[in-house]
Amino acid sequence: MDSFITMNEVSQSFNGEDVLTSINLEINEGEIYGLLGPSGSGKTTLVKTIVGTLKPSSGTVYVQDVEMPSLKKLQDIGYMAQADALYSELTAKENLAFFAKLYGIPRHSISNRIDEVLSQVDLLESKNKLADKFSGGMKRRLSLAIALLHKPKILILDEPTVGIDPILRNKVWNHFYEMKQQGISIIITTHVMDEAEKCDQLALLRDGKIMASGSPSKLKKQTNTSSIEQSFLYYGGVQT
């Protein structure tokens, strides 16, 4: 199979509360896969389960035929959490250098690589600024830079463009397309409908279940609607 990431009947429950129910998902190499859903629909839990910071309560997750959680596989995954996990006392460069060492990037190439990812997210001139002094959008971009640092084959991004202005958002998306060309698979969670349109494949998530999945055009066709928002409403209506 060329399926890069496979989730098989994955359920996730905490203290008896079901957060994810029977998720089946197949993500192919080199596609941008969007997880669309309102907050509380289980998007974050879903991506954490793929990354392996959460172990599924039942079911299996495979990333390139390796069952998650796997410490080794994390080397191939770039993860950007919903919360900006930054050390506020450190500069942008120092934050990046820290994670570079954790990913085992060779010492001599760390400095170059940091400049590369910082210019990708337009933060090169803030390289030596403390993360504490960053605006919300800048923090998001720095988190994204950390996820890109070790040139992962899979990028898992939890609401990557929140608080980023439209111009930069466009730039970031162009960069996603570029990475896709290089064969990198990207999983993005979002609650913004127009962003969902940009994905190759979409899964509509609600109350911990996948209501529908497929390419945006297929979803619109199936529901006979003209936008993803309307398809979402359609599936939501069927469901209840």
């Binding site: 910071t53 410490l71 080397q75 959490a81 919360a83 996990a85 954790l102 950390i146």
Partner: peptide, 14 residues
């Protein structure tokens, strides 16, 4: 509390 522990868990550190 600042979420970096979770972020560390997503790196190959033991």
């Amino acid at each position: 509390s600042q979420g970096t522990m979770e972020r560390l868990f997503a790196t190959p550190i033991k």
